[in-house]
Structures are given as structure tokens and as C-alpha cells.
Design a protein around this nucleic acid. Structure first.
Length: 252
DNA sequence: CACGACCCCTGGATGC
DNA sequence: TGCATCCAGGGGTCGT
């Protein structure tokens, strides 16, 4: 551990899975859990610029390059290091004695997972909410796993304007959003994710879905469906791009 | 209670 | 070339 402040939880020698003989990984929303066979668990969140990288032993990263935590590993992939680096430090690691305590502390208040979201569950999360549908989609307590890129992409695919009030959406529109979230994320994962700058998979490979974004990052450019210039604004303090004709403000 | 504003941090792009 | 400014994938906290 190079930077203690990126790690939350017990400070003991065995807190971060030291000495574990096997580790499995699971995910909920944007968060990862590494769970040792003896029960110890570490939660990881990459934030905006975080990376979890596998480095073969010979190619250890330079000391300074925002590498905050490294695990030396032996076995399956051969000797090497699992590295957590995060220039902006919006991400982090959280250590727990068990998966159950990790889930209770960090996952219990999250909404349903976005990869498998069903319209009924989404509808329930939107009930009575006057805020913009995009703000609701970004709220991890409503839906776990969607961020600024995929909120815009899914709303475009669903044909729903990002500023529509969440509770004002018709059943068919909520169904369309749930479907759009699932298919957009499935396609993005298939493409290895969106690498705008920092994101890499564990082997250091960039994703390619950024090349297929319909609206994110394309404000002012032509809508690929109708040709109209894409609008750009701020919703929930985040840059938001939409097509005013494919995503009508009044709902259609 | 639900929501928006603000803040955390580094670095790349842009403009002067 | 150098400096200032703006912006970025997230989310916790605080005030309204």
C-alpha cells in the first residue's frame, strides 16, 4: 500500500487479502468485490480514472505513476502484480472481514443492477419522483451501474428526453428505457467498454464502444438517425446530449 | 424527504 | 513556451 487514504477499513496486515490462497471476483453495479476463500473481502470502485491492471512481474509500473496499491500474486497467470492505480483518486478500495459485511456497508442501499433491470423494478424506483429521468438513472439507489455515458446513450435509444420528469413517464416509456439500458450495456461490454481516456481492462486493453456512441460527446454533431444537430445541456450537474426530434421534450 | 449545489483530485485540451 | 481556464467516466455531503 503506497497511499493509505485510498483504502478504507481495517489497517491490519491481513486486511487486504494478504496471504489469500484463492480469490473470486463478483460485481454489483459499478463495484467489484474480491473475496478470498477464507472470507475476507475487498470492494473496489474505479471512479472516473481508476484502473485494476494485471502486470507481469518484469513489467512492474514505475513507483510514482499513481499506483496506490499492488498485490504480488503467484499461480494461475504466473508471477505478477495486480495493480490499483487512480490518478484522480475518486475511486478507492474498502476492506471487510466478510462479503456479507461488504454487502451490508456498500451494496445494500443500491438499486437493482442495470445489466438485468426489468421495467417493473425501474418503474418502482421512479415513482413519485419529480426530478429529470436522467438524474434518476444516475442515482445508484434507483439503478446500480449506469453513469453519464450510458444514461445519455440509453435515453437516446429509448427515445426519451433526459429532462422529462421521472414520474411523468408512461409505462411504455419506462419499458423502453429498461430495455435500452440492458441492450446498451450489453453492447458496450461486448465492445470492451468506452475508453475515453483512462479506462483499460485488466490486461491493459482499451475498449472500443466510444466509437459507437450515438450522443455522448457528440453535442452539435448530426444525429445519426434523423440528421438534426444534437442538443447539449446540463442535467444533474453533468453534461448531457440528446436529439430534440428523436427524444421529444413532451413525450411521444 | 428529495433534490440541487458544491466539493474532492489530476491531467489533457484549448486559448491567450 | 508558458500560463490560465475549462472540462472529464463518480459520488459524498450539505443546505434548501
Amino acid at each position: 500500500v503506497r497511499r493509505r487514504d485510498v483504502v478504507t477499513g481495517p489497517r491490519g496486515r491481513d486486511a487486504l487479502l494478504l496471504g489469500a490462497h484463492s480469490v473470486r471476483a463478483l460485481r454489483y453495479g459499478k463495484q467489484l468485490a474480491l473475496v478470498a476463500a477464507d472470507g475476507r473481502a475487498v470492494c473496489a470502485h474505479l471512479g472516473m480514472s481508476g484502473q485494476l491492471l494485471w502486470r507481469p512481474h518484469a513489467a512492474a509500473l514505475a513507483q510514482r505513476d499513481h499506483v496506490h496499491v499492488q498485490w504480488r500474486l503467484e499461480g494461475g497467470e504466473g508471477p505478477g502484480r495486480l495493480v490499483f492505480r487512480d490518478p484522480r483518486r475518486f475511486g478507492g478500495l474498502w476492506a471487510f472481514p466478510s462479503l456479507e459485511s461488504l454487502q451490508a456497508a456498500r451494496w445494500e442501499r443500491l438499486g437493482p443492477d442495470a445489466l438485468t433491470i426489468e421495467s417493473g423494478a425501474l418503474q418502482a424506483g421512479l415513482e413519485g419522483s419529480k426530478r429529470a429521468i436522467k438524474a434518476a438513472l444516475l442515482d445508484q439507489a434507483v439503478l446500480a451501474g449506469v453513469g453519464n455515458i450510458y444514461a445519455d446513450e440509453a435515453l437516446f435509444r429509448a427515445g426519451v428526453h433526459p429532462m422529462r420528469a421521472a414520474a411523468s413517464l408512461r409505462t411504455e416509456e419506462v419499458e423502453a428505457i429498461a430495455r435500452a439500458v440492458r441492450t446498451t450495456l450489453a453492447e458496450a461490454i461486448e465492445a470492451g467498454g468506452s475508453s475515453l481516456r483512462d479506462y483499460r481492462d485488466a490486461m491493459g486493453v482499451a475498449g472500443s464502444y466510444q466509437g459507437r456512441h450515438a450522443v455522448y460527446g457528440r453535442g452539435g454533431l448530426a444525429c445519426a438517425v434523423c440528421g438534426r444537430g444534437l442538443d447539449r445541456g446540463i442535467v444533474a450537474q453533468r453534461t448531457t446530449v440528446w436529439c430534440a426530434s428523436c427524444q421529444p421534450a413532451k413525450g411521444g
